[in-house]
């Protein structure tokens, strides 16, 4: 430990080794899987919504990775089957998230396929769930006196409405909802799929 160069070289070599294991080999393995059958690429509108999702930081409260029934009851919550690597083939960047301050969203398009619901929820989450701590996104909407033709009016419960005004969704809101509705990985998982099976040690079913 009296020479700087070997120290630096060895330290970099160890990092390179770790990088090979944690990045290069998994990349090769995951990359060898084709996109899941049933998965479709995002449309331009959905990609615009995805950009909204990223820029508003939805990922910090919502995961997009349902777990196996061996580990957690995500399936029983309606969040969908455990996701596999092939489900994310078109996700760049990935938005798997690490927090569930809100529910998992990988299949929200399947369990909540109503655009109107999502618009209300984005405009005022607490109109739907009083306990919710999700931010409201009023800047994705416009308050108008009358809806113009082609406008999507946001429905609000009776007690939340403002008389003589209507809430209209901006294109950003429509795109975000389009992205949310595109989150639907309810097609069957490929059998050879890659995922963490560390909780399937049980092997057979009880």
């Amino acid at each position: 430990m009296n020479r700087a160069l070997p120290l630096v070289i060895l330290a970099m070599a160890i990092l390179a080794f770790a990088t090979m294991l944690l990045v290069v080999v998994p990349r090769a393995q995951i990359g060898s899987e084709p996109p899941a059958a049933g998965l479709r690429a995002y449309s331009p509108e959905e990609l615009r919504g995805r950009a909204q999702y990223m820029s508003l930081g939805c990922v910090y409260c919502h995961s997009q990775q349902p777990r196996t029934p061996d580990q957690a009851p995500d399936g029983e919550r309606g969040w969908g089957r455990p996701s596999v690597a092939a489900d994310y083939a078109y996700d760049s960047p990935h938005l798997m998230g690490t927090m569930r301050t809100g529910p998992d969203l990988l299949n929200v398009g399947a369990r909540l396929p109503s655009t109107a619901w999502h618009l209300t929820h984005l405009y005022r989450p607490r109109a739907i769930a009083p306990w919710s701590i999700m931010p409201s996104y009023p800047f994705l909407f416009e308050i108008k006196d009358h809806a113009a033709p082609g406008d999507t009016v946001v429905w609000l419960p009776r007690e939340q409405r403002v008389a003589g005004k209507v809430v209209v969704a901006r294109p950003e809101a429509m795109a975000l909802v389009a992205y949310l509705l595109s989150l639907d990985r309810t097609y069957p998982a490929p059998a050879s799929a890659i995922r963490d099976d560390g909780y399937s040690r049980v092997g057979g079913k009880p």
Binding site: P26, Q65, T68, M96
Partner: peptide
């Protein structure tokens, strides 16, 4: 990524 869609 424990329990996630990456190799075991």
């Amino acid at each position: 990524l424990i329990g996630g869609p990456v190799p075991t």
